[in-house]
Simulated scan of single mutants.
Amino acid sequence: MSDTSIASENTARADYGSARASDYFALLKPRVMSLVVFTGLVGMAVAPGDLHPVLAFTALLCIAVGAGASGAINMWYDADIDQIMERTKNRPVPSGKVTAGEALAVGVSLSVASVILMGLAVNLVAATLLAITIGFYIFIYTMWLKRRTPQNIVIGGAAGAFPPMIGWAAVTGNVSVESLVLFAIIFFWTPPHFWALSLWRDIDYANAGVPMLPVVAGREATRRQVVIYSVLLFPIAVMPYFLGYAGIVYGLGSAVLGGVFLFGAVKVWLKKDEKSAKQLFAFSLLYLFLIFALLLGEAIVKGLV
C-alpha cells in the first residue's frame, strides 16, 4: 500500500465531531504561529509612525490566523509523509484526530478571512504581503519545493521571513529597505536553523522521501552550508543599527549573538557530532527571539522617552 493510501486510511478513521478544540488548534502550528506573531509585532514596533491599538491588534490577529491557516493546509497536503516521520506522526491529521478534509477547509477559510480582514481594516499593502506569504508557503514551499529539491528550506524560508515586513507595512503602508533587512535576518537564519535539525533527523527525512540537504548532499556538505549561512547572517543582523532604526544596545547585542551563533556553526562543522547540531538548533531559536526582542525593547524605551 502506498504512503498516500495509508495516510488516507488513517485520516478516514477520524470521527466527525470527535475532534477536540485542542486538535483544531494544533492544526494551526501554535509554536510556529507564536514566533510569526512576535516578529510581526516587532516589525510594527520599529516602523515609523503610529497605528491605532485596535488596528494593531487586528493586524497581529490577521498575521496569526494567516500563519495558522498555512499550517493547516500544510498538514492536509503532507499527511502522507507526516505519518512516517517521528517528529510529525502525532499531528492531528496523520494521527486521525482531524480528517484531511477538515484541515483543508479550516486552512482555506482562515486564509481568505485573514487576508480580507487585513485589507479592509488595515491596508492593502499589508493584505497583499499576507496573501503572498500564505501562497508562498502553500504553493511554492509545501507543494513544489519541499519534496523536489534540497533547496526547499532556502527558498521556502522566505515564507517565514515575511511577518516583520507585514507588520511594518501595517503601520507605514509600504515596503522599505528597513523592512527588507528584517526579512533578510529571518531568511538567512532559516537554513542553518533547519539544517542543524536535519543533521540529526536525516534518517527521518530519508524515510519520508524529503530531499533535505543531508539526505541528498551528505552531512559534510550540510555542515559547510551551515557555516556559510551563519557567516552571511552575522552582518545582516547588525544592519538595523547601521541603518539607524536600532540603537547601540541592539548593535552590540546582535554582534555578540551573531558571534555565538557562528561559533556554534563552526563547532558543528569541526566536531561532526549530533550533540553540536542539537545545541546549534536550540540556540538558533533563542538567537532569533533575542534579536527581535532587542529591537522591540529599544522601540519600547524610545516610545517612553
Rank of each mutant, 00 (worst) to 15 (best):
G173W: 03
I300G: 02
L61V: 10
R201F: 07
M44T: 11
A47K: 04
N74F: 00
W168N: 04
V37H: 00
S254E: 11
N152K: 00
V181C: 03
A170R: 00
F261N: 09
Y241N: 01
K89H: 05
Y16I: 12
V210E: 01
A282L: 09
A158N: 08
S2P: 10
T58I: 05
S109E: 13
F242L: 10
A265T: 13
W144T: 15
L104W: 00
D80E: 06
R148N: 11
L182R: 07
V125H: 02
V260M: 05
E102A: 02
M85F: 11
A299L: 03
T149I: 08
V112T: 08
R148P: 15
A206F: 02
D78A: 02
G17Q: 07
F281E: 11
L145C: 05
L55G: 13
V238F: 00
A69W: 04
A103T: 06
A67F: 11
A237L: 05
I84F: 05
T133W: 00
A14W: 00
F183N: 12
G251E: 04
W76V: 11
Y287K: 07
V227L: 08
W200C: 15
N74R: 00
Q83D: 14
M44Q: 02
V256Y: 03
K97Q: 09
A59D: 09
S5E: 15
G135V: 03
P211N: 10
L60R: 02
M118Q: 12
P192I: 02
P164Q: 13
Y245T: 10
Y205R: 08
I134P: 03
L213N: 13
Y16F: 08
P192V: 06
T4W: 10
D3K: 01
G167R: 00
V171W: 07
A217N: 14
D202A: 12
P211W: 00
A170K: 00
R201L: 11
